[in-house]
Simulated scan of single mutants.
Amino acid sequence: MRNSSPRFTSFTLPYNLTLDQPYRHSFSAFEPDGDSLVYRAVQPATGSLVTPSCGTPIPYVFYQAGQFQDPTTGQMISYPAGQFSTAFPVLSFQAVNGVAVPQYNLNATNGELLTTPVAQVGDYSVPVQIDEYRQLNGTWTLIGQVTRDIPYGVRNPSTNRNPTISSLQVTGAAAIQPVDQPVLVRPGQSVSLTLNATDPMQARPCS
């Protein structure tokens, strides 16, 4: 059976992430054989020249209790002490009705990662594994895996704030396209998008 491994479509790193600001990062991959892909978080591993397979798991450490600021309301929210894990490798919380809820949302279908780093600046290791499945004799069978481990750097909010997209105009559309909705196009159709945004560090519109 011939097989080609999935290929990551972007190698952009999520550098200079800002505390208390939501971020999206894409682990999206292309599979040339048309196999089905499933994205999942895995434990980071290390190796050396003696063990180049990088098969030694890195143990997760504990983090202390603390507070973060809700980027929407400005309210200070407390969170308890805990331990990092495969499902929670970054100190990332969102405020839900005044309560800190762990936030590490990895979409198993398309590889989109949504986090809101809080409280502590530093560097984290965020690995994601892609499992490749193919239907053989009527049964979905795991035929390959590929892993990408990226550095996740979190910095102080005094150096940067995220811009906010205020509107999205699609050429030929009758109305403004909602910024949080997919843009629907037909095969072969040319698409022109205009994004309008504001940056709180610049205090002026940008596009």
Rank of each mutant, 00 (worst) to 15 (best):
P6N: 02
T9G: 11
F11S: 05
T12E: 12
T12V: 09
L13I: 11
L13M: 12
L13K: 06
Y15N: 11
N16T: 03
T18H: 13
L19I: 10
L19S: 07
D20M: 15
Q21T: 15
P22I: 06
P22F: 03
F27Q: 10
E31S: 11
E31G: 05
D33W: 00
D33N: 08
G34P: 07
S36C: 09
L37S: 02
R40Q: 13
R40K: 14
A41E: 05
P44T: 04
T46R: 11
V50E: 13
T51F: 02
T51A: 09
C54T: 11
P57R: 01
I58D: 00
I58N: 00
Y60E: 05
Y63T: 04
Y63C: 07
Q64Y: 04
A65V: 06
Q67A: 13
D70N: 13
D70F: 08
D70L: 07
T73D: 14
T73Y: 13
Q75T: 15
I77V: 14
S78L: 08
S78A: 14
P80C: 09
A81P: 14
G82L: 02
T86K: 12
A87G: 15
F88H: 01
P89M: 04
V90Y: 05
V90E: 03
L91F: 03
S92P: 15
F93R: 10
F93D: 04
A95S: 14
V96R: 12
V96K: 12
N97R: 02
N97K: 07
N97A: 01
G98D: 02
V99Y: 04
V99M: 04
V101A: 05
P102W: 03
Y104C: 14
N105H: 13
L106P: 08
A108I: 11
T109Q: 14
E112V: 12
T115V: 13
P117D: 06
A119F: 12
A119Y: 05
D123R: 04
S125I: 00
V126S: 07
P127A: 07
P127S: 03
Q129S: 10
I130E: 02
D131I: 04
D131C: 06
